[in-house]
Structures are given as C-alpha cells and as structure tokens.
Design a protein around this nucleic acid. Structure first.
Lengths: 157, 157
DNA sequence: TATTGTTATACTCTATAACTATA
DNA sequence: TATAGTTATAGAGTATAACAATA
C-alpha cells in the first residue's frame, strides 16, 4: 500500500521534524504577537529584562545567545516603543542597566498570556506528560549541542 | 536556594525551548554537512529529489514548504555542483523533471549517514522511547500549526 | 486564463570586524 | 590592555509581485 510521502526519508532526522515544528510554532507565535507590536525575538528580550531588572546588555546577549551588535537594534526598537529604558550604570559608566517601563510590563504580561494560550493550542493532542517529556527532550538536545561546542569531536585545532 | 536562570520564564514556552534546541541541531547539522559542500536546506532538497526522481519544482517546493522563487537558487547551486539535473518534461514543456546524478546519489548517501550519526549524538541521553515520543510530539505540533492556517481562529476577513 | 519557472526585491535573523568611551 | 556598547556590513533564509513561455 504505502505511497510514502515525498519527504519520508527526511522524517527520520530530528533536524527535519524539528525544523517543521519550529517553523509552525514560530509563525503562530509571531502572528499572536503581531497585535502587540512584538515578535518572538523582541518578546523574549522584553521578558528577560522584566525578570531581571538592571540587567546589562552583554549579559542579556549571553542569556539569549544573541550577538551584542544584533541586540542593539532590538533594544532601540523596544526603547522607541517606550517598553524598555537604558540607564547608565553608576559603577561602570560604559554599561547600561536595562529595565522595563510600566507600559512594558503590562504589554509583556498581556503578550505572555496570549503566547501561553497559543502554546496550548499548538500542543493540543499531547498529554501533560507528553508535553513535559517534550520540554525535557528539547533541553537535553540543547545541552548536547552546547557540550560539543568545545569538546571538539569534529573540529581539530 | 533558587537563583533561577535569567530566562526561566521563557522556558515555560514551547517556542523558546524549541528555538534553542533547533538552533543547536541546525548548527550541528550544518557543521556536519559543510565537508560535503551542503547545508541543511540543500541536503533536504537533494534527498527529496533522490527519493522522487522526475519530481517537478512546484511539487518539490510544496513538499518542503519552500517558496518557488527561493527553490530556484538552491537548484542552481545543486545543478552547478553536478548533483542534480533539470530536464524539460515531455508532456509539459513549461516544467522541469528533477533527478540526482550518480555523484549526487553518492554524496546524498554519505551525507545522510553523517547526519544520522550526528543526530544520534544530539539525542544522547534520550532513550529510544523518548526519541520516538519526541518525533511524535514534533509532528503533532506541526500538524496543529497547519490546521490553524485556514481555520482562522485569530484573523478575520 | 492559469500555471511553471524565473527575476527582482525586501525583510528578518544572524555573524564578524572595527570603532568609541570608559575602565 | 581590556570591556560595554555601537556602527557598518555581509550572509543566510524567507516572502511577494511581476514577467516569459507554455498550457
């Protein structure tokens, strides 16, 4: 019987299934955030600043694995929307301390709730156990990737 | 105790964990494919053509969810590497039939094996059941995303 | 008319080098 | 000298409109 789908070989690879699922989630999340004037990336930045007031750009870039130059434009955007403030650090006048404004906090809360709702929609058909297992698997994979950065199983000096 | 990581709120969202895991896999796969002169995208295209000789560009674009214009450049690249041929279809002289060359088949096989090995490395720490559950969850999510494209729960005409 | 492949174009995300001002 | 933030730039990947050849 069969008539296997045209991409059946690729389905054996984690990367392919992951890309398809991630693309689906990303479009969904971006569509969800659009009414708030946010995207997945700006929402992530806004959320981390809200949770870590006084955070500096270098540290924020590390946390989200964004290059410092790329973060600058994102913060310009969020600052321009009056969601985030940059204030010179007293102890180190090279650095900025990042904080969300009241408007930023409110938007972040509403947007976060919307994303959570759409997360639930994207996860329907999966039990609570299956969703928990998914999160565990994703973090395990991420950590496996991180450990091979330096362990140098491929690259040689 | 506690001292929760700076991105702990984001970790509750599927999209964030998925992005982190996908980014890790993608860099790994791209690094793995680099010695073959391929990337995740070109490898996917090559594999689908190998599995579906005579496939046309429109159909290939559908299968991989790539826009037709973007596929053109990828095929130019693969054709330039002598991995793929475009031949005019006899029954419809607008269309091309895509096939892999012998060189393309060999490269695809070797590259596929390398990707499978690195897939296994990225999945270490996960049991066979957990890996199977991950694939099922990813496909469920992808399918949930697809069904909301038209169902229009958000957008209104 | 509609479709296949194509060109041109633009936007997002990402990556690197080099600059400035502080330290 | 080193670091924080910035500027400029380039590369992927993705998305849309419009065109030529063919149906």
């Amino acid at each position: 019987m069969g008539d296997s789908p045209a991409d059946s070989s690729l389905r054996a690879f984690m990367g392919y299934d992951m890309k398809r699922a991630f693309t689906a989630i990303q479009s969904d999340v971006n569509a969800t955030l659009q009414p708030f004037g946010l995207r997945m990336l700006t929402f992530s930045v806004l959320t981390v600043i809200r949770d870590n007031p006084g955070l500096r750009q270098s540290r924020l870039a590390e946390v989200l694995m964004i290059e410092r130059p790329n973060l600058v434009l994102i913060l310009d955007e969020l600052e321009g929307m009056d969601l985030v403030t940059r204030t010179r650090a007293r102890d180190d006048r090279r650095a900025y301390e990042l904080k969300v404004t009241l408007k930023g906090r409110r938007l972040c809360d509403r947007a976060g709730q919307a994303v959570a709702e759409h997360d639930a929609r994207m996860a329907r058909g999966l039990s609570a156990e299956e969703r928990a297992a998914l999160h565990r698997a994703l973090r395990q994979i991420e950590s496996n990737g991180r450990s091979s950065d330096d362990a140098g199983e491929i690259s040689r000096p």
